[in-house]
C-alpha cells in the first residue's frame, strides 16, 4: 500500500513540474524584454533537470545543469549587452 502511494506522489510531482515548465516556455517565446526571456529560459531548464532526476538519470542532470543554467544565460546576456534589449515590433 505504501509502495503504490509513493509512486502516485512521484508521478504527481512530475506532472506538476511538466505543466509549469510548459507555461514558462510559452512566456519565454512571447516576451518582448529579452532579459526576462533569458530568466524564463533558465527557470525552464531548472525544472527539466529535476524531471531528469526523477527519471533516474543523474549523469544527464550533471551535464544539463552547467550548460543550460550556467553557461547559456551567460552567453545570451553578453549578446544582449552588445545589441539591443527590447525587441522591435515587426509589423508583418
Amino acid at each position: 500500500m505504501s509502495g503504490m502511494l509513493a509512486e502516485l506522489i512521484i508521478y504527481l510531482i512530475m506532472a506538476v513540474l511538466g505543466i509549469m515548465s510548459t507555461i514558462a516556455v510559452y512566456l519565454a517565446i512571447k516576451e518582448r524584454d529579452l532579459v526576462k526571456a533569458v530568466v524564463y529560459s533558465a527557470l525552464q531548464s531548472s525544472f527539466y533537470a529535476v524531471l531528469y532526476y526523477f527519471l533516474m538519470a543523474p549523469d544527464i542532470v550533471l551535464v544539463y545543469l552547467p550548460v543550460a543554467v550556467g553557461l547559456v544565460p551567460g552567453v545570451l546576456l553578453i549578446l544582449i549587452s552588445k545589441t539591443e534589449r527590447w525587441e522591435k515590433n515587426e509589423a508583418s
Binding site: A42, S46, A49, L65, P66, V69, G70, P73, G74
Partner: peptide, 9 residues
Amino acid sequence: PLALWIYAL
C-alpha cells in the same frame, strides 16, 4: 552543482 551554478546566474 545545482547550488553552485544558480549563484553564477
